[in-house]
Amino acid sequence: MSTVTPVTEQLLRAMALPAPGGDSKDGRGRVLVVAGCTGLPGAVLLSANAALRAGTGKLQLAVCRDLAIPLGIAVPEALVIGLPQTEDGNIDRAGADGLALRAGSSDAVLAGPGMIEDAETQAVVTALVRGAAQAALVLDAGSLIAVRADPGLTRMRASPAVLTPHAGEMAQLLGQDREAIEADPLAAARQASERFGTVTVMKGSRTHIVTPDGRAWCYEAGHVGLAISGSGDTLAGIMVGLLARGAAPETAALWSVYAHGEAGRRLGRRHGGIGYLAREIPGELPAILAGVSA
């Protein structure tokens, strides 16, 4: 399948998000975010706020022990679970079985923002993916180590996981040079979707979204100011929030990429170009999502 469809507001209106499920927070889903290390606690905060601004009803944050109280104060809307941690300040595999159980009772799970790529993360994410068999799933950043180690980990899921690599991460996933990925990001996204059975969001100045069955979209209207630390964490948070609301994986991916890009454009106009912060992106989301849905 060679056709690549542009991601536009008109396209999204034909792929409407699920309506909020009544007046209860249970109707908008339960999110579990497994993320962070002592060196990158902000990644948890960024993805958490984005998930809430995307409209999820309940939020749980699973983080290494030293981050639990600070993040509980920073995100008072969330239930925060402090997990065993390694000497490096990463989540220890000793918490993997408990996380797998929590994943099984969640509607959508995000793993990876701010996590160290090591054997502990690989073990934690592997257990999490297996425990989240019935939950929607986004794998970002550090969690991709588990997919590299076992390409079959995501392939047999009833509903495809969403992978969100940038060019460097995609090069590692596919065992190719970064230059080859940057030369043909669409081909890389297609290869990843086929290999891992995922909806693949190939991030870049032009973002490509490809499903396991070969459907492909491209978003070209983003803003240069989005090339900042933490931007990808917010994108992953938007995705898991929309998945929790009941959106299909490709629908959540397309809406998230568009909303993220439009947030960047609005912030760029307001701040005179570059220089806005990733933490400012989530605040733009409710108006953008409502405007497209109107």
Results as ranks from 00 to 15, higher is better:
Gly89Leu: 08
Ala103Ser: 06
Arg102Trp: 09
Ile81Leu: 01
Ala108Phe: 02
Thr86Tyr: 04
Gln85Phe: 08
Gly72Arg: 14
Pro70Glu: 01
Val75His: 08
Asp92Ser: 15
Leu71Cys: 05
Ala94Cys: 10
Arg93Pro: 12
Leu101Met: 13
Gly98Leu: 02
Ala103Arg: 05
Asn90Met: 08
Asp88Cys: 10
Leu71His: 01
Glu87Arg: 15
Leu101Ser: 14
Ala96Met: 11
Ile81Gln: 06
Leu99Cys: 04
Asp88Thr: 14
Ser106Asp: 05
Asp92Arg: 00
Asp107Val: 03
Ile81Phe: 04
Arg102Ser: 07
Val80Leu: 00
Ile91His: 03
Ala68Asn: 09
Val75Asp: 05
Val109Arg: 00
Asp97Gly: 10
Ile73Arg: 13
Ala68Ile: 05
Ala68Pro: 00
Ala74Ile: 07
Ala111Ser: 13
Asp88Gly: 11
Ala100Ser: 13
Ala103Leu: 02
Asn90Asp: 15
Gly72Pro: 12
Ile81Asn: 06
Ala96Val: 09
Ile81Ala: 08
Gly72Val: 14
Val109Ser: 03
Val80Met: 01
Asp107Phe: 00
Leu101His: 10
Gln85Thr: 10
Val80Ile: 00
Ala94Ile: 00
Val75Ile: 15
Gly95Gln: 10
Gly72Gln: 13
Asp88Ala: 15
Ile73Phe: 12
Ala108Asn: 04
Arg93Ile: 11
Leu101Arg: 12
Ala103Glu: 05
Pro70Ile: 02
Ala78His: 06
Thr86Leu: 09
Pro84Phe: 00
Val75Trp: 06
Ile69Tyr: 14
Ile73Met: 14
Thr86His: 11
Gly104Asn: 14
Glu87His: 11
Val75Pro: 06
Pro76Ala: 13
Leu71Val: 02
Ala111Leu: 13
Glu87Cys: 03
Val75Glu: 04
Gln85Ser: 14
Val75Gln: 11
Arg102Cys: 10
Ile69Ala: 13
Ala103Cys: 13
Ala68Ser: 14
Gly95His: 09
Thr86Ala: 06
Leu79Lys: 08
Leu83Phe: 05
Ala78Val: 04
